[in-house]
């Protein structure tokens, strides 16, 4: 082998071909209403005219019935933990101290769980049926994003009866 460079008989095993494309995210009419609500400290869902289920965040349609969900419904900023996971594994971009809890929260008045952080509680104390409430960012810091809710925390209410969330586990 001389200093002449790579061996032309050696197969090329990889190439670099970077791809960079920019997109505008377009939440759509229903999600825009929801995100503007969050900016004002309100949680706005939509009710299906056929099955009466309330979607939060709304998507403009009932996925089960395939019909538009035009009726807007405000739901509570508190609810019940239906399932959760304790995050113990560090990962790239991690901002929160380990261990922490991600939970699916069935807001009072909603028929679909909302995914968010659970804080101000020891991970081993979190359980299904636990009642929790939203901790909002101060009004001047709220933006049209779910990060305007900093996290949820236990509300101190007694656990919810299993019957109230059994269809959501």
């Amino acid at each position: 082998m001389t200093e002449a460079g790579p061996d032309p008989n050696e197969p090329v095993r990889s190439i670099r071909a970077p791809v960079h494309l920019e997109y505008h995210f377009m939440p759509g009419r229903a999600s825009s209403r929801f995100l503007r609500g969050v900016e004002q400290g309100r949680l706005l869902g939509q009710r299906c005219p056929q099955c009466a289920k309330v979607y939060v965040p709304p998507r403009g349609a009932c996925a089960a019935c395939g019909v538009p969900t035009d009726e807007e419904v405000e739901v509570a900023d508190r609810g019940t933990v239906t399932t959760f996971c304790v995050v113990n594994v560090p990962f790239h971009g991690q901002k929160i101290k380990l261990p922490y809890v991600s939970a699916t929260i069935l807001l009072d008045g909603a028929d679909i769980g909302l995914f968010h952080l659970l804080q101000e509680v020891d991970a081993e104390k979190v359980h299904m049926g636990m009642r929790v409430e939203a901790v909002w960012a101060p009004p001047e810091q709220r933006k049209p994003t779910l990060e305007s809710i900093l996290h949820f925390r236990p509300s101190g209410e007694p656990d919810a009866d299993y019957e109230t969330y059994k269809d959501h586990v």
Partner: peptide
């Protein structure tokens, strides 16, 4: 500008099904 893909699609799907006479 306002609608996402589902919001564009939904009335179109509904119209086609309605015109077909086949129940959804």
């Amino acid at each position: 500008e306002g609608a996402n893909e589902v919001e564009i699609l939904m009335p179109v799907v509904s119209a086609a099904i309605e015109r077909s006479g086949v129940p959804r």
